[in-house]
């Protein structure tokens, strides 16, 4: 079974398509002869240039859900594309808040399962075969779809590099909007942006993450200050997110974000498998923890056994003096 067509769901961020979608367009080019994109929202055609530059021939406009959460409507429009004569062999969806909703609802409409948390895709005997990091990245599982119909793949960010090929703008084809009735009745009434200065977790060259070893929520300020001085982004282990110290958006790990910074600085993080899978791809890892036996030290390029409440303030002071 050859792979002829791949459709990539293109999600929009504040500045054009999100990088995870551009990564998927780039990866798809190496797997299929034809790559198309599909996007939703107002003025989809404004994305045609970028999407084309990353190799998509067509950009399908799935309609504008307006203030409604996009899952039901976008899934319905995608399902229409996935059952026609030009149905894709695979649909690639970025692992985002809306991407997972869309993939899940599409799965029901097509009665096809979803492979999520994909970190690698390759062709094996003409069949798309996925890689997944399991048990904290200690093992790699490979999987594929069986049976007829397009495969739905939800891929984690940073699994592939995003590379432009400089193609012509994609041809925009309108297929939406789909009417989904009350299923699409959830609507956003206001948006709240929390002020976060500095780079995002996804893009930062330095990520400083805190864990339970900080002792109390107030100590997370040390992590934030260190991140600020290093022009990096603050992150967190699941333990302190579950404890309510910081919001979910800060979480690095299996159930949070995957980061691949130049330096990952783990402060008071023991290194549960849940966490390691989200940061093992960092170029360099520095860990500070009081427990010499902490698993984080087995993957750290520089490990410091000691008290984070002593070492981090010293580090902050030293960095301030350099500034």
């Amino acid at each position: 079974m050859a792979v002829d067509r791949i459709l990539v769901l293109v999600e929009r961020g504040p500045a054009g398509p999100v990088s995870a979608s551009l990564e998927l367009l780039s990866a798809a080019r190496g797997l299929a002869a034809r790559v198309d994109g599909a996007a939703w929202g107002a003025d989809v055609s404004s994305l045609a240039g970028t999407v084309g530059a990353y190799g998509a021939a067509t950009l399908f406009d799935l309609g504008d859900p307006g203030d409604a959460l996009p899952g039901p409507q976008v899934a319905a429009a995608l399902a229409g594309l996935a059952t026609g004569p030009d149905a894709p062999d695979a649909i690639l969806v970025p692992t985002t808040y809306d991407g997972r909703d869309i993939a899940a609802r599409l799965s029901v409409r097509l009665d096809r399962p979803v492979l999520t948390n994909v970190v690698g895709l390759e062709l094996v005997d003409g069949t798309l075969t996925t890689s997944h990091a399991i048990f904290g990245g200690a093992q790699v599982a490979r999987a594929r779809f069986t049976g007829a119909g397009p495969g739905i793949f939800v891929v984690r960010a940073k699994s592939f590099p995003a590379e432009e090929v400089g193609g012509d703008p994609a041809a925009v084809v309108t297929v939406g909007p789909a009417d989904v009735g009350t299923t699409g009745a959830a609507r956003v009434v206001s948006r709240h942006v929390e002020e976060r200065s500095g780079p995002s977790l996804d893009e930062a060259a330095v990520v400083v993450s805190g864990g339970r070893g900080l002792g109390q929520p107030e100590s997370y300020q040390l992590v934030e200050e260190l991140a600020r001085l290093l022009h990096g982004a603050p992150g967190a282990s699941r333990a302190i997110v579950d404890a309510g110290w910081v919001p979910y958006a800060y979480q690095v790990g299996q159930t949070g974000k995957t980061v691949k910074p130049t330096v990952y600085l783990a402060v008071g993080i023991s290194g549960a498998t849940q966490h390691l899978v989200g940061m093992k791809g960092a170029k360099n890892i520095v860990a500070i923890n009081k427990d010499q036996e902490a698993p984080i030290f087995s993957i750290a390029d520089l490990g410091v056994v000691g008290d984070v409440h002593k070492i981090v303030p010293q580090l902050i002071e030293a960095l301030k003096q350099r500034a």
């Binding site: 990091a133 790699v140 490979r142 999987a143 779809f145 069986t146 490990g303 410091v304 000691g306």
Partner: peptide, 29 residues
């Protein structure tokens, strides 16, 4: 509608230097 075709050990990432803080470890960082 999906199947696991293989499970194998991931490439291990080697650890580096581990030092015990004597009050100056921040300088090494």
């Amino acid at each position: 509608g999906q199947e696991l075709v293989e499970v194998r050990d991931a490439e291990a990432r080697a650890g580096g230097e581990v030092v015990v803080d004597d009050g100056s470890a921040y300088e090494q960082i």
